[in-house]
């Protein structure tokens, strides 16, 4: 398979018109037609119906298009970065951070990207999953790190890591001396429950293994940690978060609560070079569990 064949095919899918696709690709129409035929031979079937005046994708064409355009985009990204790093163009990366997901997760990746793109501007935005999905759909964000349960179909997602639930306590708390904790150990404690804190507290309450006093708190995991330090209650948060002095983190072993964290982008949306390369860097590597 050759890059130009895929390029012509993707252009043809966009225009659904051989003449316009040929113009867009700067080739003659017979050359474009031949390239598409060769691609069809290789993929083992017609990719397009060619009725008089009407060009339509076949089922094979529809299935194949996202794969081929993904590959084409990957090839273009690899080449563009080489160009743009020389051209010193301004580059942008806007990353959404879902509930109880810290920028520390990807800070190292951003650092490595910036070494290659010195003019990179980085913007992080914390929010709830629905809020961040809306921001991505509205092109206010390029990508987001989200808990990977119940994500909308329109998002491409790649699971980066799995996180476990830990209990966060003031260092002076009676349970701080324990190595691990269970729901029963927390019986009678005040649980802090927030909208943007990862949902572990609600899952624990729903499990019904013990009874707690619930204190609702708005804000993000950062504010929740401040409340724990001030003695307002204990928090259930992912193990990956870095906590400040005065707090301790103890694994919750029963029930064992976990969640996956995925990198998400809007499917089919063209990406800027820095964004595409950020996604590649994230996908290429393994993320330590914590």
């Amino acid at each position: 398979m050759e890059l130009h064949q895929v390029r012509y095919f993707v252009a043809l899918c966009r225009t659904l018109n051989f003449t316009r696709a040929a113009t867009e690709c700067n080739v003659t129409q017979p050359a474009l037609t031949r390239a598409i035929q060769k691609l069809e031979e290789e993929l083992g079937g017609a990719l397009l119906y060619r009725d008089r005046g009407m060009t339509q994708l076949t089922p094979l064409g529809r299935i194949t298009l996202p794969h081929l355009s993904g590959m084409l985009a990957a090839a273009a990204t690899a080449r563009r970065v080489a160009d743009e790093a020389l051209g010193r163009q301004q580059m942008h990366l806007r990353v959404g951070l879902g509930p109880a997901i810290s920028a520390a997760r990807v800070a190292d990746v951003v650092g490595r990207l910036a070494r290659h793109c010195p003019t990179l501007d980085v913007h992080f935005e914390e929010g709830t999953t629905p809020g961040l999905v809306e921001a991505m759909l509205g092109d206010a964000l390029d990508c987001a790190l989200l808990p990977d349960a119940d994500l909308p179909e329109r998002l491409h997602r790649w699971r980066l890591c799995e996180e476990c639930c830990v209990v966060l306590l003031p260092a002076a708390h009676r349970l701080a001396a324990r190595d691990t904790l269970t729901a029963a150990d927390l019986e009678g404690e005040t649980l802090l429950v927030g909208q943007r804190c990862g949902g572990f507290a609600l899952r624990m309450i729903e499990a019904g293994d013990a009874s707690f006093t619930v204190r609702r708190c708005g804000g993000s995991w950062v504010q929740m940690l401040d409340l724990v330090a001030a003695g307002l209650g204990v928090a259930l948060l992912p193990d990956a978060l870095v906590i400040g002095p005065g707090l301790v983190s103890r694994p919750l072993v029963a029930p064992e609560l976990r969640r996956g964290v995925a990198l998400t982008v809007v499917a089919g949306r063209p990406q800027g070079t820095a964004v595409a390369q950020f996604v590649k860097l994230c996908r290429a590597r393994a993320f330590a569990p914590a």
Binding site: E2, A74, T77, A78, R283, R285
Partner: peptide
């Protein structure tokens, strides 16, 4: 090198389904 989504492979004409 990690050729995410086989972009380089496509560019070199060595990728097949």
């Amino acid at each position: 090198l990690c050729d995410v989504d086989c972009g380089l492979g496509l560019d070199c004409g060595v990728v097949f389904r």
